[in-house]
Amino acid sequence: MEGMAEHTQLIDAIDIRTTIRAYDPDKIEDDQARQLSMTLDAVNMLADLNIQLVRNQPKVFAEANASGHYTNAANYLAIVGPRNDDEARERGGFYAERVVLAATLYGLGTGWVVGSWDKAEAARHCRVTNSQEIYAGVVIGHPQNHLTYTAKKFEELTEIQRTHRPTKSFEELTRTMSDEARAAAPQWFRDGMAAVAKAPSARNTQPILFSWDPETGTVVASIDPELDGPYALNDLGIAKLHFQLGAGTGEWGWGNGAMFIKK
């Protein structure tokens, strides 16, 4: 991808990542699969999860491909972790999105999967023990007309990202803050929120709210109770990762309502 050598950080991936629904039929090459596997090994060690890459299983997406929701979807990441573990679900969103951003830098297209796959069929092709479950999935592959796509300059890809779907405003994503607090918010918080606005979420609901406390300098992320649902914890993890990358150094606690401490 032209210009990608200068844009190898995950924050740059945030600026060009879009949800891809149409894929070329070309298989993910072994070299790219090895790159992804190395990324997965490192991420799984950090996350204490078992996120897996599964290739060449179009049956998993047969209905979605037939309906036109996807085109040529055949590969996926299965986010696997312990059953009934809310923190693990959140970690799944956080760390699997790191893999998504890495895949973006490799020139691959991705899209978080909510209901548009056969989850039982997906489970047949990966390792899920009796004490584990699949939290969610990510379809992955070469974007349609990918040779044209990868020839685009970084600036062209950022413009595609900026205009590909509507997003909530800074005010909407921080609606629990007062106008005075928003006006006083430091630039690193605004940078974090700019990255949050570009985060994927289930059905594009963007259900995570952020607030900065001017007295303590801490940030809290919480699930909007009006938009809570089965994938909200996954979305919480994704949004926290985007914020952390946008804000720079700092660290989150796990859980709904946990704090981010800027370092």
Rank of each mutant, 00 (worst) to 15 (best):
R83W: 04
N84L: 07
D85V: 05
R89Y: 10
R89C: 08
R89G: 05
R91L: 13
G92K: 10
G92D: 00
Y95H: 00
Y95F: 12
A96V: 10
V99C: 09
L101W: 02
L101S: 01
T104D: 03
L105M: 05
Y106A: 01
Y106P: 00
Y106V: 01
G107M: 08
G107T: 04
L108W: 04
T110C: 10
V114L: 10
V114D: 14
S116Y: 14
W117G: 13
E121Y: 06
E121R: 06
A122S: 02
A122W: 02
A123D: 12
A123K: 11
H125I: 05
C126G: 12
C126F: 11
V128D: 08
V128R: 09
N130W: 03
S131C: 06
S131Y: 10
E133N: 02
I134E: 07
A136P: 08
A136F: 14
G137Q: 02
V138H: 10
V138Y: 13
V139A: 08
G141V: 10
P143Y: 03
N145H: 14
N145D: 07
H146T: 03
H146D: 15
T148P: 02
T148Y: 04
Y149N: 05
T150V: 11
A151L: 09
A151Y: 01
F154D: 12
E155K: 09
E155A: 01
E155Q: 11
E156L: 07
E159Q: 06
H164P: 07
P166H: 11
P166W: 14
T167R: 15
T167C: 07
K168H: 09
R175W: 11
M177I: 00
M177A: 02
M177S: 03
M177H: 09
S178C: 02
D179I: 03
D179H: 13
A183H: 03
A183L: 10
A183Q: 05
A184S: 12
A184H: 05
A185F: 01
P186N: 04
Q187R: 04
F189R: 12
F189H: 09
D191H: 13
G192M: 12
M193E: 00
M193S: 04
M193A: 14
A194S: 07
A195L: 06
A195E: 02
A197L: 01
A199C: 06
P200L: 13
P200S: 11
S201Y: 13
S201V: 09
A202Y: 06
R203L: 15
N204A: 12
T205M: 12
T205G: 04
T205C: 08
T205N: 14
T205Q: 15
Q206W: 02
Q206R: 04
P207Y: 04
L209E: 06
E215Q: 12
